[in-house]
Amino acid sequence: MTLHLLLSACRRLAFSGLLVCGSIAVAAATGTDNNNPKAASASNSSNSAAVVRGIDVSRWQKEVDWDMVSQSGVSFSFIKATEGDYKQDPFFARNWEETKRHGIKRGAYHFYKPEIPVARQVELFTSTVTIEPGDLPPVLDLEVMDRELTPEQLRKDVRTWLEAVTAHYGVRPIIYTGQNYYRRYLKGYFPDYHFWIARYSDVKPDIHHTDSWMFWQFTDRGSIAGINSAVDINFFAGDFEQLNLLCVPEFMAHNRYDRESPLSQLKHLQPLP
């Protein structure tokens, strides 16, 4: 997609209800209660219109020129880290470091394989990814289904992954999925988690009234300077300040070695004597 097409897409989105003049309240985009004081406060915190655009990358984009990407209006990037219980993305380490170095908000995601034991998938992801303050929450990528698995068992296993990763990092993950997968298997079952929905349409994601979406993957055919292949383009349902609020705070970011020492989390709140 050229810059012209992206601008055209943004104009179409304006009519579909995602982009509005002034700040964009997260509550409005997610379908949560507009009378919520916290949501209202977040909405009023910005007095300028902003389209917060991001990408997601994996080995398919190969070696990304993050310097050029950072100059292309990209505010955040989700980076593939792991898949199943055996595969690490060969470009993860480089992408993870380069996004931070160039001031792009970063988040790591795990491609879930329903046929593989959950514990092994949790171990691979948590042993690969170290989250730092300012990073986006981890993401569970749900796209495939196992014929031997019932929807109920899938949801049970997914919840096990989400809760284990929450316990490890101290922050709830985001669930990525396509609109159809969401409707078939997830709709209304995970109200405590934000969704990132892939829907290649001018119409924003359609979700259950108890759910909320934070990110919309608008196309998988985007064109960004610094990437020599098609790339997914995503919009965040809010302004940049709200994106910052979604990121991991200082006192919650830790790696797997902190699990033995819960008190280590308090050192960021008050210096030890």
Rank of each mutant, 00 (worst) to 15 (best):
S23K: 01
S23V: 02
I24H: 07
I24A: 04
A25L: 09
A25S: 15
A25K: 12
V26F: 14
V26A: 13
A27T: 08
A27F: 04
A27S: 15
A28V: 12
A28T: 14
A28Y: 11
A29E: 14
A29L: 15
A29K: 13
T30P: 01
T30K: 08
T30L: 02
T30N: 14
T30I: 00
T30Q: 11
T30V: 00
G31D: 13
G31P: 03
T32Q: 15
T32I: 08
D33I: 04
D33E: 10
D33T: 03
D33Q: 08
D33F: 02
N34S: 15
N34H: 13
N35V: 01
N35G: 07
N36I: 05
N36R: 05
P37N: 07
P37T: 02
P37V: 10
P37E: 11
P37D: 05
K38D: 06
A39G: 08
A39R: 03
A39K: 05
A39S: 14
A39F: 09
A40G: 03
A40W: 00
S41Q: 10
S41E: 08
S41R: 06
S41P: 01
A42V: 02
A42G: 06
A42W: 07
A42Y: 02
S43D: 00
S43P: 04
S43E: 03
S43T: 00
S43C: 08
S43L: 06
S45H: 05
S45V: 02
S45A: 10
S45C: 05
S45P: 00
S45L: 04
S46R: 01
S46I: 03
S46Y: 00
S46N: 00
S46V: 04
S46A: 07
S46W: 01
S46P: 00
S46T: 03
N47A: 02
N47I: 01
N47Q: 07
N47L: 07
N47H: 05
N47D: 06
S48M: 01
S48N: 03
S48F: 04
S48G: 04
S48R: 03
A49M: 14
A49K: 12
A49S: 15
A49R: 14
A50R: 08
A50Y: 02
A50G: 08
V51Y: 02
V51L: 14
V52N: 06
V52P: 00
R53T: 12
R53W: 06
G54A: 11
G54D: 05
G54Q: 04
G54L: 10
I55T: 08
I55S: 11
D56Y: 07
D56P: 04
D56M: 10
V57Q: 12
V57L: 09
V57W: 10
S58W: 07
S58H: 10
R59D: 06
R59C: 07
R59F: 05
R59L: 05
W60P: 01
W60M: 05
W60L: 09
Q61R: 11
K62V: 05
K62N: 11
K62Q: 11
K62E: 10
K62D: 12
E63V: 13
E63Q: 12
E63C: 04
E63W: 00
E63M: 07
E63Y: 05
E63L: 10
V64L: 15
V64Q: 13
V64E: 12
V64F: 14
D65F: 06
W66A: 08
